[in-house]
Design a protein around this nucleic acid. Structure first.
Lengths: 129, 129
DNA sequence: CGCTAACGGAAGCATCTGCTAACGTTCGCG
DNA sequence: CGCGAACGTTAGCAGATGCTTCCGTTAGCG
């Protein structure tokens, strides 16, 4: 039972590689992004969310499950209803991932552009600063 | 068929919904993320990139095509070789997307949490912030 | 208890996606 | 021109994914 998944299949540790993977895969679906946009500004029940789309409620429910499993959604029970709202914490992993990637690639791009200017007179020393 | 796709199959307008979709789908693949990390710090030829993985060069080539089509990669020809490097511009769309989503969901979360505090307490004040 | 409402879950299907294998193309060299 | 190197492209296959239909569960109500 001592698996590396204490909270039992729901939202891995934020900042982890697995968390980023889950969140990215969840956001890769347009419908899922639309759902997330809907509950980003207000808490809504599953049925209410499903009405906004042409697909069946079951499909939306599955999307909600994926989003919740990725840590991007917060679920709250209210009688037979289940209220959902976006979870800002689930996005911090992606934020840091993009930030890191952006910094690295931007640095490389700058270096390459500067190298182009002095192609015939380029010093290839690894002066990583 | 004059569709809304002037630049024909290579890196749509940054900031567009389609661009975000392409970039997100491209980043949803772990291998693709690894490739992007590799070329984030230095420019590398396709064959050199392929050597870093267990899969065939063809698979990596296809991944490179997807990344390039998503605007996340920059290709440069050098004889028979093709040098690739990460494109920071391709990430700005995701950055704004995440930022927008973050702001909205954070605002909602804050509102919900504050509402929880005054559940038993009838707080009917119009302090809508 | 019986009924309805609001959901999630499982099975089945159509489609997408990533991988491999074989082939074609472009470039450099002698 | 002939040859090899470096890549991209196409066809085909196995696994993942999203959607639908049917069914089970839980909560409120008379």
């Amino acid at each position: 039972m001592g698996d590396t998944d204490p909270p039992s299949g729901t939202a891995p540790d934020p900042g982890s590689e697995h968390a980023t993977d889950e969140a990215l895969k969840a956001l890769a679906e347009p419908r899922r992004r639309a759902i997330l946009r809907l509950v980003a500004h207000e808490e809504l029940p599953a049925g209410r969310i499903a009405e906004e789309f042409e697909v069946s409620r079951t499909a939306v429910s599955q999307h909600l499950g994926v989003l919740k499993s990725a840590g991007l959604l917060h679920e709250r029970r209210d009688g037979t209803r289940r209220l959902y709202r976006a979870r800002p914490e689930g996005l911090v992993g992606l934020q840091s991932f993009l930030d890191q990637m952006w910094a690295g690639s931007l640095d490389t791009a700058r270096r390459l552009v500067e190298a182009e200017r002095g192609i015939s007179d380029d010093d290839q020393s690894a002066s990583a600063g």
